[in-house]
């Protein structure tokens, strides 16, 4: 990449989240540098979304520290967003009965300061800020290709566009780090490709991206670095190819081969036995 100085955007050290007796996330360290796309993968229930919620202040981690560009993040979601981390949700959480444009404008909330008095008295600064917000929101809609549908209700958009709109809404808060929680879930291959392009374009705007995904091909194409979370613990972190080849990762997804994995001989034996038992049972029937 052309970025000469890579600085750490997000630094999570020893993040632990316990719910009563259950430890959902156990002492996870993760850093995201500027201009980087980092993937977070793991089987279902590995604690990926819980880890996200710890980063964004929805949960207060039981233990550990999260810093964003050197400052410790406050444990409140709106303050985290204000600091510069924006997120999307695994199950789309748009403001369904607001228009597309309004959804993006809500995303601008932290970057505008107009209060109630300013709105009631309609000070000149109010209309200026409102116009600027609208312009910025329309730019974002252009960027994701939804400008023509600005006045539609968010709930009436097709699924893929709802995902895109959620990303636009997150981008509206001018984040330095974007957290995407399964952005391609439920998408067809074309839509997944388009999302890939979109994430690259976001990275090119200078926004670091941390993405949870199950689609391994998507992760391999996209990510500079991949971390694998299994049962709340980070087991591997590294470039995509390394992670893909790692035994522990394969074990986590597919299970471990037991001692003395069946060779071809044993396999043939088993098959023969099966074939025998089926024919004999057929004979019994007659």
């Amino acid at each position: 990449m052309t970025t000469t100085i890579t600085s750490t955007v997000l630094d999570a050290t020893g993040v632990t989240m316990r719910f009563g007796g259950l430890t959902a996330v156990r002492s996870v360290d993760l850093t995201v540098n500027s201009g980087e796309i980092v993937g977070l993968i793991g089987p279902n229930g590995a604690g990926k979304t819980t880890f996200f919620n710890c980063l964004t202040g929805l949960y207060v981690p039981t233990d550990g520290k999260v810093t964003y560009k050197g400052t410790v993040l406050p444990p409140k979601p709106h303050l985290v967003t204000q600091a510069g981390i924006a997120r999307t949700f695994q199950n789309i959480r748009l403001f369904a009965n607001m228009t597309v444009l309004e959804n993006v404008l809500v995303g601008r909330h932290t970057r505008t300061k107009e209060g109630l008095w300013s709105a009631l008295l309609r000070l000149p600064s109010f209309s200026k800020a409102e116009a600027a917000s609208r312009e910025r929101a329309m730019e974002l809609l252009e960027f994701i290709g939804l400008a023509a549908k600005a006045d539609h209700l968010a709930r009436n958009l097709p699924y893929g566009e709802q995902r895109k709109l959620e990303i636009a809404r997150a981008l509206a808060s001018e984040p330095g780090l974007l957290l995407l929680d399964e952005p391609t879930a439920g998408m067809n291959p074309q839509e997944t490709r388009a999302t890939e392009e979109l994430v690259f374009a976001i990275r090119d705007k200078g926004i670091a991206v941390l993405v949870i995904e199950h689609d391994i091909r998507f992760i391999m194409n996209l990510c500079d670095r991949v971390a694998v979370l299994v049962q709340g613990e980070k087991i591997v972190e590294g470039p995509a190819e390394v992670v893909q080849a790692d035994e522990r990762v394969i074990a986590a997804y597919l299970g471990t081969p037991f001692d003395g994995a069946p060779g071809s001989e044993e396999a043939a034996e088993v098959e023969a036995a099966e074939a025998h038992s089926t024919t004999s049972s057929e004979g019994d029937d007659q």
């Binding site: 964004t56 959480r93 748009l94 404008l105 809500v106 909330h109 709105a119 409102e130």
Partner: peptide
């Protein structure tokens, strides 16, 4: 005037989905 402002939009957002609204700052 309050409904058609940043504050009013934030109210509607809270009504629609409070968790998402807080995640939007």
């Amino acid at each position: 005037r309050s409904a058609e402002s940043r504050i009013g939009r934030a109210w509607v957002a809270i009504r629609e989905d409070e968790t998402a609204a807080t995640a939007m700052g």
